[in-house]
Design a protein around this nucleic acid. Structure first.
Length: 492
RNA sequence: GCGGGCGUAGCUCAGUGGUAGAGCGUCACGUUGCCAACGUGAAUGUCGUGAGUUCAAGUCUCAUCGCCCGCUCCA
Protein backbone atom coordinates (compact mmCIF):
# COMPACT_ATOMS: atom_id res chain seq x y z
CA UNK A 1 0.00 0.00 0.00
CA UNK A 2 1.43 3.27 -1.06
CA UNK A 3 1.02 6.16 1.27
CA UNK A 4 1.35 9.89 1.01
CA UNK A 5 4.89 10.76 1.93
CA UNK A 6 4.79 14.50 2.10
CA UNK A 7 2.44 17.16 3.28
CA UNK A 8 2.77 18.84 -0.10
CA UNK A 9 1.05 15.89 -1.72
CA UNK A 10 -1.87 16.24 0.64
CA UNK A 11 -2.13 19.96 0.07
CA UNK A 12 -2.07 19.35 -3.67
CA UNK A 13 -4.73 16.65 -3.48
CA UNK A 14 -6.89 18.85 -1.29
CA UNK A 15 -6.77 21.70 -3.72
CA UNK A 16 -7.11 19.58 -6.85
CA UNK A 17 -10.18 17.80 -5.62
CA UNK A 18 -11.77 20.72 -3.83
CA UNK A 19 -11.26 19.67 -0.24
CA UNK A 20 -9.27 22.56 1.16
CA UNK A 21 -8.14 25.88 -0.28
CA UNK A 22 -5.99 28.57 1.20
CA UNK A 23 -8.05 31.47 2.47
CA UNK A 24 -8.04 34.67 0.39
CA UNK A 25 -5.79 32.99 -2.12
CA UNK A 26 -6.46 35.53 -4.88
CA UNK A 27 -5.04 38.16 -2.54
CA UNK A 28 -1.87 36.21 -1.87
CA UNK A 29 -3.30 34.15 0.94
CA UNK A 30 -3.78 34.83 4.61
CA UNK A 31 -1.45 33.01 6.97
CA UNK A 32 -2.96 30.19 8.96
CA UNK A 33 -6.43 30.46 7.42
CA UNK A 34 -7.98 27.84 5.16
CA UNK A 35 -11.32 27.28 3.45
CA UNK A 36 -13.13 24.01 2.92
CA UNK A 37 -14.21 23.40 -0.68
CA UNK A 38 -17.21 21.44 -1.94
CA UNK A 39 -15.86 18.04 -0.98
CA UNK A 40 -14.13 19.35 2.12
CA UNK A 41 -17.23 20.82 3.65
CA UNK A 42 -19.10 17.54 3.17
CA UNK A 43 -16.24 15.63 4.78
CA UNK A 44 -15.93 18.03 7.68
CA UNK A 45 -19.68 18.10 8.26
CA UNK A 46 -19.67 14.33 8.28
CA UNK A 47 -16.87 14.28 10.85
CA UNK A 48 -18.86 16.61 13.07
CA UNK A 49 -22.02 14.57 12.53
CA UNK A 50 -20.21 11.36 13.39
CA UNK A 51 -18.80 12.92 16.55
CA UNK A 52 -22.20 14.26 17.60
CA UNK A 53 -23.86 10.94 16.87
CA UNK A 54 -21.50 9.00 19.10
CA UNK A 55 -21.07 11.57 21.83
CA UNK A 56 -24.63 12.92 22.09
CA UNK A 57 -27.19 11.03 20.03
CA UNK A 58 -26.22 7.50 21.06
CA UNK A 59 -25.69 8.30 24.73
CA UNK A 60 -28.25 8.88 27.45
CA UNK A 61 -25.88 10.92 29.58
CA UNK A 62 -24.74 13.72 27.27
CA UNK A 63 -26.73 16.70 25.99
CA UNK A 64 -25.74 19.27 23.39
CA UNK A 65 -25.16 23.00 23.47
CA UNK A 66 -24.19 25.75 21.05
CA UNK A 67 -22.81 28.88 22.70
CA UNK A 68 -22.02 32.30 21.33
CA UNK A 69 -18.42 32.94 20.41
CA UNK A 70 -18.48 36.29 22.23
CA UNK A 71 -18.96 36.06 25.95
CA UNK A 72 -18.78 38.38 28.90
CA UNK A 73 -15.15 39.38 29.41
CA UNK A 74 -15.34 38.26 33.02
CA UNK A 75 -15.69 34.69 31.75
CA UNK A 76 -12.10 34.91 30.58
CA UNK A 77 -10.97 36.55 33.79
CA UNK A 78 -12.45 33.72 35.83
CA UNK A 79 -11.20 30.99 33.51
CA UNK A 80 -7.68 32.40 33.70
CA UNK A 81 -7.35 33.02 29.96
CA UNK A 82 -7.31 36.82 30.25
CA UNK A 83 -4.20 36.61 32.38
CA UNK A 84 -2.60 33.45 31.17
CA UNK A 85 -2.98 34.44 27.57
CA UNK A 86 -0.72 37.45 27.93
CA UNK A 87 2.62 35.83 28.53
CA UNK A 88 5.77 37.89 28.42
CA UNK A 89 8.30 36.61 25.95
CA UNK A 90 11.87 37.71 25.58
CA UNK A 91 14.38 36.77 22.99
CA UNK A 92 18.04 36.00 23.47
CA UNK A 93 20.05 38.30 21.19
CA UNK A 94 22.82 35.72 20.83
CA UNK A 95 20.89 32.63 19.80
CA UNK A 96 17.43 34.04 19.01
CA UNK A 97 15.78 31.66 21.39
CA UNK A 98 12.51 32.93 22.75
CA UNK A 99 11.63 32.16 26.31
CA UNK A 100 8.86 33.12 28.65
CA UNK A 101 10.23 35.74 30.99
CA UNK A 102 8.79 34.05 34.05
CA UNK A 103 10.67 30.88 33.14
CA UNK A 104 14.08 32.52 33.11
CA UNK A 105 16.48 31.57 35.85
CA UNK A 106 18.86 33.93 37.58
CA UNK A 107 22.62 33.56 37.09
CA UNK A 108 23.03 33.24 40.85
CA UNK A 109 20.90 30.16 40.82
CA UNK A 110 17.72 31.95 41.81
CA UNK A 111 14.56 30.14 40.92
CA UNK A 112 12.24 31.49 38.24
CA UNK A 113 9.36 33.65 39.37
CA UNK A 114 6.14 31.91 40.16
CA UNK A 115 3.75 32.25 37.33
CA UNK A 116 0.50 31.03 38.81
CA UNK A 117 -0.76 34.60 38.55
CA UNK A 118 0.18 35.97 35.20
CA UNK A 119 0.70 39.58 34.34
CA UNK A 120 -2.15 41.47 32.75
CA UNK A 121 -1.73 42.76 29.26
CA UNK A 122 -1.54 46.43 30.14
CA UNK A 123 0.63 45.87 33.16
CA UNK A 124 2.89 43.71 31.08
CA UNK A 125 3.44 46.48 28.60
CA UNK A 126 4.29 48.99 31.28
CA UNK A 127 6.24 46.73 33.57
CA UNK A 128 9.99 47.04 33.72
CA UNK A 129 11.75 43.75 33.87
CA UNK A 130 15.36 43.49 34.90
CA UNK A 131 16.75 40.70 32.78
CA UNK A 132 20.41 41.68 33.17
CA UNK A 133 21.12 38.75 35.44
CA UNK A 134 18.94 36.21 33.68
CA UNK A 135 20.40 33.22 31.87
CA UNK A 136 19.39 32.02 28.44
CA UNK A 137 18.28 28.41 28.84
CA UNK A 138 19.54 27.60 25.36
CA UNK A 139 23.01 29.15 25.00
CA UNK A 140 23.73 30.23 28.56
CA UNK A 141 24.32 33.88 27.71
CA UNK A 142 23.61 36.20 30.61
CA UNK A 143 21.58 39.39 30.26
CA UNK A 144 21.44 39.31 26.47
CA UNK A 145 17.69 39.66 26.20
CA UNK A 146 15.45 41.90 24.15
CA UNK A 147 12.75 43.97 25.82
CA UNK A 148 10.05 41.61 26.99
CA UNK A 149 7.12 41.55 24.62
CA UNK A 150 3.66 40.63 25.76
CA UNK A 151 1.81 38.10 23.64
CA UNK A 152 -1.90 38.50 23.40
CA UNK A 153 -3.06 35.02 22.76
CA UNK A 154 -6.76 35.91 22.61
CA UNK A 155 -8.23 37.76 19.66
CA UNK A 156 -9.78 41.05 20.63
CA UNK A 157 -12.71 42.78 19.04
CA UNK A 158 -15.05 45.61 19.85
CA UNK A 159 -18.70 45.31 20.75
CA UNK A 160 -20.89 48.33 20.16
CA UNK A 161 -21.19 50.36 16.97
CA UNK A 162 -20.49 53.61 18.73
CA UNK A 163 -16.72 53.84 18.80
CA UNK A 164 -16.63 55.87 22.02
CA UNK A 165 -18.92 53.51 23.83
CA UNK A 166 -17.64 50.17 22.64
CA UNK A 167 -16.28 47.45 24.84
CA UNK A 168 -13.30 45.22 24.18
CA UNK A 169 -14.40 41.62 23.83
CA UNK A 170 -12.58 38.38 23.16
CA UNK A 171 -13.22 35.70 20.62
CA UNK A 172 -13.36 32.54 22.69
CA UNK A 173 -10.09 30.59 22.81
CA UNK A 174 -12.00 27.42 23.69
CA UNK A 175 -15.62 26.30 23.64
CA UNK A 176 -15.38 24.80 27.11
CA UNK A 177 -16.06 27.99 29.04
CA UNK A 178 -19.42 28.46 27.37
CA UNK A 179 -20.35 25.04 28.69
CA UNK A 180 -19.27 25.86 32.24
CA UNK A 181 -21.14 29.15 32.06
CA UNK A 182 -24.30 27.23 31.12
CA UNK A 183 -23.88 24.42 33.62
CA UNK A 184 -26.64 25.84 35.83
CA UNK A 185 -29.00 26.45 32.90
CA UNK A 186 -28.67 22.90 31.64
CA UNK A 187 -29.17 21.46 35.13
CA UNK A 188 -32.31 23.51 35.61
CA UNK A 189 -33.86 22.83 32.23
CA UNK A 190 -33.19 19.24 31.27
CA UNK A 191 -33.57 16.89 34.27
CA UNK A 192 -30.00 15.66 33.80
CA UNK A 193 -28.23 14.35 36.86
CA UNK A 194 -24.56 13.90 37.58
CA UNK A 195 -22.90 12.02 36.02
CA UNK A 196 -23.71 13.73 32.74
CA UNK A 197 -21.96 15.64 30.01
CA UNK A 198 -22.54 18.70 27.83
CA UNK A 199 -21.17 18.62 24.30
CA UNK A 200 -20.45 21.41 21.89
CA UNK A 201 -18.90 21.87 18.46
CA UNK A 202 -17.76 25.29 17.41
CA UNK A 203 -15.08 27.70 16.30
CA UNK A 204 -12.36 28.90 18.64
CA UNK A 205 -9.58 31.40 18.14
CA UNK A 206 -6.04 31.56 19.45
CA UNK A 207 -3.24 33.86 18.40
CA UNK A 208 -0.71 31.05 18.32
CA UNK A 209 2.87 32.23 18.48
CA UNK A 210 3.56 30.04 15.49
CA UNK A 211 1.15 28.22 13.27
CA UNK A 212 2.00 24.89 11.82
CA UNK A 213 1.56 22.44 9.00
CA UNK A 214 -1.43 23.22 6.83
CA UNK A 215 -4.68 23.03 8.80
CA UNK A 216 -3.00 21.33 11.73
CA UNK A 217 -2.46 24.40 13.87
CA UNK A 218 -4.45 27.42 12.76
CA UNK A 219 -5.49 30.52 14.64
CA UNK A 220 -9.14 29.96 13.80
CA UNK A 221 -10.16 26.37 14.36
CA UNK A 222 -13.08 24.18 15.22
CA UNK A 223 -13.34 22.20 18.42
CA UNK A 224 -15.58 19.40 19.56
CA UNK A 225 -15.63 19.28 23.33
CA UNK A 226 -17.44 17.42 26.05
CA UNK A 227 -17.43 18.55 29.64
CA UNK A 228 -18.47 15.48 31.54
CA UNK A 229 -19.51 16.23 35.11
CA UNK A 230 -19.09 13.51 37.70
CA UNK A 231 -18.92 13.04 41.43
CA UNK A 232 -15.48 13.58 42.97
CA UNK A 233 -13.97 10.18 43.53
CA UNK A 234 -15.52 8.73 40.40
CA UNK A 235 -13.49 10.98 38.11
CA UNK A 236 -10.65 8.55 37.49
CA UNK A 237 -13.09 5.89 36.40
CA UNK A 238 -14.84 8.25 33.98
CA UNK A 239 -11.49 9.43 32.69
CA UNK A 240 -10.63 5.86 31.69
CA UNK A 241 -14.04 5.32 30.10
CA UNK A 242 -13.75 8.42 27.99
CA UNK A 243 -10.23 7.53 26.94
CA UNK A 244 -11.45 4.21 25.62
CA UNK A 245 -14.54 5.66 23.98
CA UNK A 246 -12.68 8.40 22.18
CA UNK A 247 -9.90 6.15 20.92
CA UNK A 248 -12.45 3.71 19.58
CA UNK A 249 -14.30 6.49 17.78
CA UNK A 250 -11.28 7.18 15.58
CA UNK A 251 -10.56 3.57 14.75
CA UNK A 252 -14.26 2.83 14.19
CA UNK A 253 -14.29 5.57 11.58
CA UNK A 254 -11.40 4.25 9.62
CA UNK A 255 -8.19 5.46 11.25
CA UNK A 256 -5.69 2.61 11.15
CA UNK A 257 -4.84 1.53 14.68
CA UNK A 258 -1.11 1.59 13.97
CA UNK A 259 -1.34 5.30 13.22
CA UNK A 260 -3.06 6.16 16.49
CA UNK A 261 -1.78 6.16 20.04
CA UNK A 262 -2.18 7.63 23.50
CA UNK A 263 0.41 9.85 25.04
CA UNK A 264 0.10 10.53 28.74
CA UNK A 265 1.22 13.90 29.98
CA UNK A 266 3.99 14.02 32.51
CA UNK A 267 2.99 15.48 35.85
CA UNK A 268 5.11 18.59 35.27
CA UNK A 269 3.50 19.02 31.87
CA UNK A 270 0.00 19.26 33.30
CA UNK A 271 -1.83 22.55 33.59
CA UNK A 272 -2.07 23.55 37.23
CA UNK A 273 -5.77 22.66 37.41
CA UNK A 274 -5.51 19.31 35.66
CA UNK A 275 -5.17 16.09 37.56
CA UNK A 276 -4.42 14.01 34.49
CA UNK A 277 -4.28 14.49 30.74
CA UNK A 278 -3.72 12.23 27.79
CA UNK A 279 -3.43 13.04 24.10
CA UNK A 280 -4.80 10.93 21.30
CA UNK A 281 -2.09 11.26 18.70
CA UNK A 282 -2.03 10.49 15.00
CA UNK A 283 1.06 9.78 12.97
CA UNK A 284 0.89 12.63 10.49
CA UNK A 285 3.17 12.64 7.47
CA UNK A 286 4.69 16.00 8.24
CA UNK A 287 7.42 17.22 10.47
CA UNK A 288 9.73 14.32 11.14
CA UNK A 289 6.91 11.84 10.64
CA UNK A 290 5.73 13.05 13.96
CA UNK A 291 2.95 11.96 16.17
CA UNK A 292 0.67 14.92 16.63
CA UNK A 293 -2.26 15.56 18.88
CA UNK A 294 -5.80 15.07 17.61
CA UNK A 295 -7.54 15.26 20.93
CA UNK A 296 -6.73 15.89 24.56
CA UNK A 297 -8.64 14.16 27.33
CA UNK A 298 -8.16 15.92 30.65
CA UNK A 299 -9.33 15.56 34.19
CA UNK A 300 -9.98 19.23 34.98
CA UNK A 301 -11.15 18.49 38.51
CA UNK A 302 -13.61 21.05 39.92
CA UNK A 303 -11.36 23.95 38.94
CA UNK A 304 -13.54 25.64 36.32
CA UNK A 305 -16.84 25.60 38.17
CA UNK A 306 -15.12 26.87 41.32
CA UNK A 307 -13.48 29.64 39.35
CA UNK A 308 -16.79 30.72 37.87
CA UNK A 309 -18.38 30.77 41.30
CA UNK A 310 -15.71 33.30 42.22
CA UNK A 311 -16.11 35.13 38.93
CA UNK A 312 -19.85 35.49 39.42
CA UNK A 313 -19.12 37.70 42.42
CA UNK A 314 -16.78 40.03 40.50
CA UNK A 315 -19.38 41.95 38.49
CA UNK A 316 -19.53 44.84 40.96
CA UNK A 317 -15.76 45.21 40.80
CA UNK A 318 -16.05 45.14 37.03
CA UNK A 319 -18.40 48.12 36.89
CA UNK A 320 -16.60 50.02 39.65
CA UNK A 321 -13.39 49.76 37.65
CA UNK A 322 -14.93 51.12 34.49
CA UNK A 323 -15.15 47.71 32.86
CA UNK A 324 -11.38 47.40 32.88
CA UNK A 325 -10.66 43.71 33.05
CA UNK A 326 -7.10 44.27 34.18
CA UNK A 327 -8.28 46.03 37.33
CA UNK A 328 -10.83 43.46 38.35
CA UNK A 329 -9.85 41.50 41.41
CA UNK A 330 -11.14 37.98 41.60
CA UNK A 331 -12.88 37.55 44.97
CA UNK A 332 -11.47 34.97 47.32
CA UNK A 333 -13.17 31.64 47.26
CA UNK A 334 -15.96 31.19 49.79
CA UNK A 335 -15.25 28.73 52.56
CA UNK A 336 -18.43 26.82 51.78
CA UNK A 337 -17.81 26.94 48.06
CA UNK A 338 -19.04 23.39 47.61
CA UNK A 339 -22.56 24.69 48.38
CA UNK A 340 -22.28 27.49 45.84
CA UNK A 341 -24.53 28.25 42.86
CA UNK A 342 -22.62 25.92 40.56
CA UNK A 343 -22.79 22.98 42.93
CA UNK A 344 -24.90 19.90 42.39
CA UNK A 345 -27.23 18.29 44.89
CA UNK A 346 -27.49 14.53 44.75
CA UNK A 347 -31.00 13.69 46.01
CA UNK A 348 -30.34 10.04 46.59
CA UNK A 349 -27.14 10.50 48.51
CA UNK A 350 -28.30 13.78 50.05
CA UNK A 351 -24.92 15.17 49.09
CA UNK A 352 -23.95 18.57 47.68
CA UNK A 353 -20.69 19.05 45.83
CA UNK A 354 -18.93 20.75 42.92
CA UNK A 355 -18.64 18.09 40.21
CA UNK A 356 -15.34 17.04 38.77
CA UNK A 357 -14.98 17.39 35.02
CA UNK A 358 -13.57 15.04 32.42
CA UNK A 359 -12.94 16.90 29.20
CA UNK A 360 -12.41 15.15 25.87
CA UNK A 361 -11.47 18.01 23.56
CA UNK A 362 -11.04 17.16 19.89
CA UNK A 363 -9.80 19.27 17.01
CA UNK A 364 -12.26 18.92 14.15
CA UNK A 365 -9.89 20.30 11.54
CA UNK A 366 -7.11 18.06 12.75
CA UNK A 367 -9.20 14.94 12.73
CA UNK A 368 -10.65 15.83 9.33
CA UNK A 369 -7.09 16.03 8.06
CA UNK A 370 -6.23 12.74 9.73
CA UNK A 371 -9.23 10.99 8.18
CA UNK A 372 -8.21 12.39 4.82
CA UNK A 373 -4.59 11.35 5.12
CA UNK A 374 -5.41 7.94 6.50
CA UNK A 375 -7.93 7.20 3.76
CA UNK A 376 -5.49 8.01 0.96
CA UNK A 377 -4.23 5.06 -1.00
CA UNK A 378 -2.68 4.17 -4.32
CA UNK A 379 -2.72 0.75 -5.90
CA UNK A 380 -1.71 -0.88 -9.13
CA UNK A 381 -4.57 -1.99 -11.36
CA UNK A 382 -3.59 -3.50 -14.70
CA UNK A 383 -0.42 -1.49 -14.81
CA UNK A 384 -2.18 1.76 -13.95
CA UNK A 385 -2.10 3.56 -10.63
CA UNK A 386 -5.47 3.86 -8.99
CA UNK A 387 -5.75 6.74 -6.52
CA UNK A 388 -8.49 6.45 -4.00
CA UNK A 389 -9.71 7.66 -0.67
CA UNK A 390 -10.94 4.79 1.44
CA UNK A 391 -13.24 6.85 3.62
CA UNK A 392 -15.49 5.17 6.11
CA UNK A 393 -18.96 5.35 4.49
CA UNK A 394 -20.26 7.68 7.17
CA UNK A 395 -17.51 10.18 6.40
CA UNK A 396 -17.50 9.95 2.61
CA UNK A 397 -18.45 13.32 1.09
CA UNK A 398 -20.56 11.63 -1.57
CA UNK A 399 -22.27 8.36 -0.72
CA UNK A 400 -23.10 7.15 -4.20
CA UNK A 401 -22.69 8.09 -7.85
CA UNK A 402 -25.16 7.07 -10.56
CA UNK A 403 -24.16 6.58 -14.19
CA UNK A 404 -25.80 5.54 -17.41
CA UNK A 405 -23.36 3.14 -19.03
CA UNK A 406 -23.81 4.99 -22.31
CA UNK A 407 -25.69 8.12 -23.17
CA UNK A 408 -28.51 6.54 -25.18
CA UNK A 409 -31.43 4.10 -25.15
CA UNK A 410 -33.10 5.95 -22.29
CA UNK A 411 -30.35 5.06 -19.84
CA UNK A 412 -29.69 8.67 -18.78
CA UNK A 413 -33.36 9.14 -17.87
CA UNK A 414 -33.47 6.01 -15.74
CA UNK A 415 -30.19 6.94 -14.04
CA UNK A 416 -31.45 10.44 -13.38
CA UNK A 417 -34.54 9.10 -11.70
CA UNK A 418 -32.50 6.79 -9.51
CA UNK A 419 -30.15 9.61 -8.51
CA UNK A 420 -33.01 11.94 -7.70
CA UNK A 421 -34.63 9.31 -5.56
CA UNK A 422 -31.43 8.60 -3.64
CA UNK A 423 -30.68 12.29 -3.14
CA UNK A 424 -33.59 12.52 -0.76
CA UNK A 425 -31.71 10.25 1.59
CA UNK A 426 -28.02 10.99 1.14
CA UNK A 427 -25.59 12.89 -1.05
CA UNK A 428 -25.57 11.44 -4.50
CA UNK A 429 -23.81 12.44 -7.71
CA UNK A 430 -24.98 11.96 -11.29
CA UNK A 431 -22.52 11.73 -14.18
CA UNK A 432 -23.00 10.72 -17.80
CA UNK A 433 -19.85 12.18 -19.36
CA UNK A 434 -17.16 10.08 -20.96
CA UNK A 435 -16.15 6.48 -20.47
CA UNK A 436 -17.58 4.72 -17.47
CA UNK A 437 -14.14 3.58 -16.32
CA UNK A 438 -13.01 7.13 -16.01
CA UNK A 439 -16.11 8.00 -14.06
CA UNK A 440 -15.40 5.16 -11.64
CA UNK A 441 -11.86 6.37 -11.07
CA UNK A 442 -12.95 9.93 -10.51
CA UNK A 443 -15.30 8.77 -7.79
CA UNK A 444 -12.50 6.68 -6.29
CA UNK A 445 -10.43 9.81 -5.86
CA UNK A 446 -13.34 11.58 -4.18
CA UNK A 447 -13.84 8.60 -1.89
CA UNK A 448 -17.37 7.72 -3.03
CA UNK A 449 -18.13 4.23 -1.66
CA UNK A 450 -20.60 3.11 -4.36
CA UNK A 451 -21.19 3.63 -8.05
CA UNK A 452 -24.49 2.57 -9.60
CA UNK A 453 -24.59 1.94 -13.33
CA UNK A 454 -27.66 1.67 -15.53
CA UNK A 455 -26.96 -0.61 -18.49
CA UNK A 456 -28.75 -2.55 -21.22
CA UNK A 457 -29.91 -5.20 -18.83
CA UNK A 458 -31.63 -2.53 -16.72
CA UNK A 459 -33.98 -1.97 -19.62
CA UNK A 460 -34.99 -5.64 -19.50
CA UNK A 461 -35.13 -6.61 -15.83
CA UNK A 462 -34.83 -3.38 -13.84
CA UNK A 463 -31.54 -4.29 -12.21
CA UNK A 464 -28.47 -2.08 -11.96
CA UNK A 465 -24.86 -2.80 -11.09
CA UNK A 466 -23.51 -1.56 -7.79
CA UNK A 467 -19.76 -1.21 -7.86
CA UNK A 468 -17.90 -1.07 -4.57
CA UNK A 469 -15.03 1.36 -4.25
CA UNK A 470 -12.47 -0.65 -2.29
CA UNK A 471 -12.77 -3.99 -4.10
CA UNK A 472 -14.15 -2.73 -7.43
CA UNK A 473 -16.54 -5.70 -7.26
CA UNK A 474 -19.96 -5.39 -8.83
CA UNK A 475 -23.29 -6.90 -7.87
CA UNK A 476 -26.66 -6.62 -9.58
CA UNK A 477 -29.48 -5.20 -7.52
CA UNK A 478 -33.05 -4.53 -8.54
CA UNK A 479 -33.86 -0.85 -8.58
CA UNK A 480 -36.58 -1.14 -5.95
CA UNK A 481 -34.15 -2.78 -3.53
CA UNK A 482 -31.37 -0.33 -4.25
CA UNK A 483 -32.11 2.18 -1.54
CA UNK A 484 -32.41 -0.44 1.18
CA UNK A 485 -29.26 -2.14 -0.02
CA UNK A 486 -27.24 1.07 0.07
CA UNK A 487 -28.60 2.26 3.39
CA UNK A 488 -27.60 -1.02 4.92
CA UNK A 489 -24.11 -0.91 3.41
CA UNK A 490 -23.64 2.75 4.27
CA UNK A 491 -24.81 2.17 7.82
CA UNK A 492 -27.13 5.15 7.60
C1' G B 1 11.11 35.26 15.80
C1' C B 2 15.73 32.71 13.60
C1' G B 3 17.93 29.51 9.69
C1' G B 4 17.12 26.86 5.03
C1' G B 5 14.05 25.87 0.66
C1' C B 6 10.11 27.25 -2.58
C1' G B 7 6.28 30.41 -5.39
C1' U B 8 5.36 29.92 -13.76
C1' A B 9 -1.97 27.08 -16.45
C1' G B 10 -6.69 23.64 -11.94
C1' C B 11 -2.36 19.98 -10.48
C1' U B 12 2.97 18.39 -11.29
C1' C B 13 6.81 20.94 -13.28
C1' A B 14 10.46 22.77 -17.53
C1' G B 15 12.04 27.50 -18.90
C1' U B 16 20.24 31.19 -16.72
C1' G B 17 18.19 38.69 -19.97
C1' G B 18 15.22 38.49 -26.22
C1' U B 19 7.63 35.89 -28.98
C1' A B 20 4.82 31.96 -22.22
C1' G B 21 5.84 25.94 -22.53
C1' A B 22 4.94 20.34 -21.57
C1' G B 23 2.35 16.30 -19.22
C1' C B 24 -1.94 15.33 -16.63
C1' G B 25 -6.64 17.36 -15.69
C1' U B 26 -11.02 20.35 -17.55
C1' C B 27 -14.59 21.45 -21.58
C1' A B 28 -17.00 20.48 -26.64
C1' C B 29 -18.10 17.11 -30.72
C1' G B 30 -17.71 12.17 -32.54
C1' U B 31 -16.95 7.28 -31.13
C1' U B 32 -17.59 4.10 -26.93
C1' G B 33 -21.77 -1.99 -23.68
C1' C B 34 -18.01 -1.92 -17.22
C1' C B 35 -12.62 0.32 -14.81
C1' A B 36 -8.04 6.88 -15.97
C1' A B 37 -9.86 3.91 -24.13
C1' C B 38 -9.55 6.57 -28.99
C1' G B 39 -10.00 10.67 -32.60
C1' U B 40 -10.65 15.90 -33.50
C1' G B 41 -10.92 20.52 -31.43
C1' A B 42 -10.96 24.30 -27.40
C1' A B 43 -10.36 27.23 -23.04
C1' U B 44 -7.11 28.65 -19.12
C1' G B 45 -1.40 32.67 -17.07
C1' U B 46 -1.56 40.30 -13.55
C1' C B 47 5.18 34.07 -14.14
C1' G B 48 2.71 35.47 -5.71
C1' U B 49 2.69 41.17 -5.10
C1' G B 50 5.30 45.97 -5.44
C1' A B 51 9.46 48.76 -6.66
C1' G B 52 14.33 48.99 -9.08
C1' U B 53 18.41 47.88 -12.88
C1' U B 54 18.10 47.29 -18.33
C1' C B 55 16.73 48.87 -25.09
C1' A B 56 14.45 44.43 -23.02
C1' A B 57 13.00 40.91 -16.61
C1' G B 58 9.56 34.62 -15.51
C1' U B 59 15.08 35.11 -15.46
C1' C B 60 19.17 40.16 -12.07
C1' U B 61 18.52 43.47 -7.23
C1' C B 62 15.54 45.10 -3.05
C1' A B 63 11.16 44.91 -0.28
C1' U B 64 6.76 42.41 0.82
C1' C B 65 3.09 38.31 1.09
C1' G B 66 2.33 33.11 1.27
C1' C B 67 3.75 27.87 1.72
C1' C B 68 7.14 23.84 3.26
C1' C B 69 11.36 21.93 6.41
C1' G B 70 14.26 22.60 10.94
C1' C B 71 14.69 25.34 15.55
C1' U B 72 11.80 27.98 19.10
C1' C B 73 7.12 28.43 21.25
C1' C B 74 2.61 26.19 22.76
C1' A B 75 -2.15 23.15 24.30
Amino acid sequence: MAKLAKLDDIVSLCKRRGFIFQSSEIYGGLASCYDYGPLGVELKNNVKRAWWKHVVQMRDDVVGLDCSILMHPLVWKASGHADKFADLISECKKCNTRTRVDHLKDKDGGQPDEHTEHVSIDAAAAQEHDLSTKVCPNCGAVGQFTQPMPFKLMFETQMGANAEDSMTMYLRPETAQGIFANFRNVLDSTRVKVPFGIAQIGKSFRNEVTTKAFIFRTREFEQAEVEFFCEPGTDEEWYEKWKAARFAWYTDHGIKAENLRFRDHDPDELAHYAKACVDVEYKFPFGSGDWQELEGIANRTDYDLRQHQRGMRSTTSWFENGRDLTKVKMPDEAEDYHKGPLSFFDDQKQLRYIPYVIEPSAGIDRSTLAFLVDAYDEEEVKGETRNLLRFHPSLAPTKAAVFPLVKKDGMPEIAHNIANDLKRHFTCFYDEKGAVGRRYRRQDEAGTPFCITVDGQTLEDKTVTVRERDSMDQVRITTDQLRTYLRDKLDL
